[in-house]
Design a protein around this nucleic acid. Structure first.
Ligand SMILES: [Zn+2]
Ligand SMILES: [Zn+2]
Ligand SMILES: [Zn+2]
Ligand SMILES: [Zn+2]
Lengths: 159, 159
DNA sequence: GGATCGCATGTTATGATATAACGTTCGCGG
DNA sequence: CCGCGAACGTTATATCATAACATGCGATCC
């Protein structure tokens, strides 16, 4: 897995690849990749930014794909539950996963200036946490690791 | 710093010590440890659990110390800003810090069965994260590390 | 002492996020 | 055809958070 979000990249390609990967994963696991679910993933993929459920809903509304909160939340829940998107607790928002399919402990770098979000491998941090928790007898099931700060571009721009 | 929350301990003593430490820290830094702020910290200290702002507010209301959300949020913001309490993003809730005064990168273990929350040193995980972020040119300012799972007691009880 | 200021607090109103609950649709296997 | 389960549509409501403005009160300056 590679970190994405801050550096430039062929974004059309990156979107297409993710969509295809998710499509295949759904087929393989017998999951229904319905139009709403697919469209919500596309909306998230469009930007490497976290979007609130209501931001997503606004887009769906314009396109006649749904107009009430549960529509957006259900699609987002599906994507998150299956590892195709992640929820950023700090922002009450969602991002498309940059490595759908791969088992990974994601870790997010959130720029407070431009709101960019990068997903980066959190293996080391997550392992450190698991071992600390294990010593206490705590059984870790899920880990959320989120850093807030300045992305490279904003560090440079800022000062 | 020591992990607190799961093991038994002399809780009256632990509350008294925290309060005294915070009192002194406020005096030293010229911060106003007002009655509402003090009471909110006491409410949080009473249980090693995360409480929502409205839970805290309910208590304040009963005691005539305030009845509107901003009262609770302002006191909580004060405590969090000065490191006397922490916000748990995952739960939209707050806990008293178990090591007020010490500079630390807290990391939380949240039991999904009994809602206990333990604060444990997150140095290793946080260092791992900072170094990974540094390689990408991201400047980390704050880190939230939160694990959800089963505490020792619930592991044993559960299965 | 009175003017002024900063800061905590009181209060009203509203915004933002999330879910419960129930009905409808539709494909699929019995 | 019937019954079932999964997705979706819709209404209503719960939960979390803040904007904005008014009030009180001690510290400081003159
Ligand atoms: Zn991309
Ligand atoms: Zn940025
Ligand atoms: Zn204690
Ligand atoms: Zn427990």
């Amino acid at each position: 897995m590679e970190t994405k979000g801050f550096e430039h990249h062929d974004h059309h390609h990156c979107i297409a690849t993710s969509l295809r990967t998710v499509e295949e994963a759904c087929k393989a696991q017998g999951l229904q990749f319905t139009p709403v679910r697919r469209r919500v993933l596309e909306i998230l993929l469009d930007e490497h930014r976290a979007m609130g459920a209501y931001d997503v809903l606004d887009v769906l509304r314009k396109e006649g794909l749904g107009s009430q909160p549960p529509v957006a939340y259900r699609a987002l829940d599906f994507l998150v539950a299956n590892g195709f998107a992640h929820r950023i607790e700090r922002l009450n928002a969602f991002v498309a996963c940059t490595a759908p399919g791969e088992r990974h402990a994601p870790c997010f770098l959130i720029c407070r200036a431009c709101s960019a979000v990068a997903e980066t491998p959190g293996r080391r941090a997550s392992d450190a946490l698991r071992s600390a928790a294990g010593e206490l007898g705590f059984k870790v099931e899920r880990v959320a690791i989120e850093a807030e700060g300045l992305c490279p571009a904003c560090v440079e721009a800022g000062a």
